[in-house]
């Protein structure tokens, strides 16, 4: 079942992600994907994640599709103007890749090519509108397309953003602009996530809770300090600190969270960041 069918069926959806390599050896990326085969509905492929130059997302998606995976093409606005974004999107659709996650993208100064020119000709909301327009057979300049794509456009939201009101207002704009599913930034506090979902529910768009697998208390503290919009509660950190087997505890924390939010959202997006081999155990423990 494709991601599109899974979302349409209304059942609990599971996605995960892989990162393309820096270089042309995709074997490790494919091995990572194999760890998740049969357990996820689709695999997101990051786009020069954290502004670090890597093999292109479209090529990586094609490798995955050829191996029988449904992929989600992440598209950021950092590196391409509206011409390049649209032509890459059309190229993807011509290859059968139609799941797209529209992102603004991390700033170039955070990555490994800090002197590069940041593009940001469009941003996530406008990119969603452009995708909607392409789906309608017209490009951003109003010119008709020869052969119309049928993208399933998704977007991201940060439920623990501080402050939250402007983030929620932007979430509403993304829905209006054509986002048909959301994958959230990593969330750990089920209570606060459920509060967020009460607000999000009114928009009637599927939301998949973001899960980043914690492997140590140090990792949790690092994320709290360095990753905007991620809040790992003290209780979770303390649980990891007092554990004799941090890995097992990390699996328990993730599966417990999924269990708690399961009836309040439409799926989970698991970002394992190198711990993909743990994902099947998390899904087993969560009964997915």
């Amino acid at each position: 079942m494709s991601l599109r069918e899974a979302l349409e069926s209304g059942r609990f959806v599971v996605t995960s992600e892989v990162g393309p390599p820096k270089g042309i050896d995709v074997s490790e990326m494919m091995e990572t994907a194999e760890l998740l085969r049969g357990r996820v509905d689709a695999l997101n492929v990051t786009d020069n994640q954290a502004a670090i130059m890597r093999l292109c997302t479209l090529a990586a998606c094609l490798h995955l599709e050829n191996a029988g995976f449904d992929s989600v093409l992440q598209v950021t606005c950092r590196d391409r103007n509206r011409l390049a974004l649209q032509s890459d999107l059309l190229g993807a659709a011509s290859l059968g890749i139609t799941n797209v996650l529209a992102l603004t993208g991390d700033h170039v100064t955070l990555g490994d090519h800090r002197e590069a020119k940041p593009v940001f000709d469009l941003e996530s909301v406008q990119l969603l509108e452009v995708i909607e327009s392409l789906n309608g057979g017209v490009d951003a300049a109003g010119k008709e397309l020869h052969g119309t794509p049928d993208f399933l456009a998704g977007a991201v939201v940060t439920p623990d953003a501080n402050p939250l009101p402007p983030q929620l207002a932007k979430f509403a704009k993304k829905v209006k602009a054509g986002a048909r599913f959301f994958q959230t930034q990593a969330v750990y506090d089920a209570t606060s996530f459920k509060r967020f979902m009460e607000q999000a529910r009114q928009f009637g768009v599927p939301v998949m809770a973001g899960v980043v697998v914690l492997r140590s208390a140090g990792m949790a503290k690092f994320m709290n300090r360095n990753i905007p919009g991620i809040v790992v509660p003290d209780a979770v950190i303390s649980e990891l600190e007092h554990s004799s087997d941090a890995q097992a505890t990390g699996i328990k924390i993730a599966s417990r969270f999924i269990d708690e939010v399961r009836d309040h959202c439409d799926g989970v997006h698991i970002m394992a960041v190198g711990a993909e081999r743990l994902v099947p155990s998390i899904l087993d423990a969560a009964g997915l």
């Binding site: 941003e123 909301v125 501080n162 983030q167 919009g229």
Partner: peptide, 20 residues
């Protein structure tokens, strides 16, 4: 806005501060 966004904050905001 470091990204010149016209439609609201990106996900890089941390306690009201830009990701830069």
């Amino acid at each position: 806005c470091a990204k010149g966004i016209l439609n609201g904050p990106c996900g890089g905001v941390s306690d009201g501060t830009c990701e830069l």
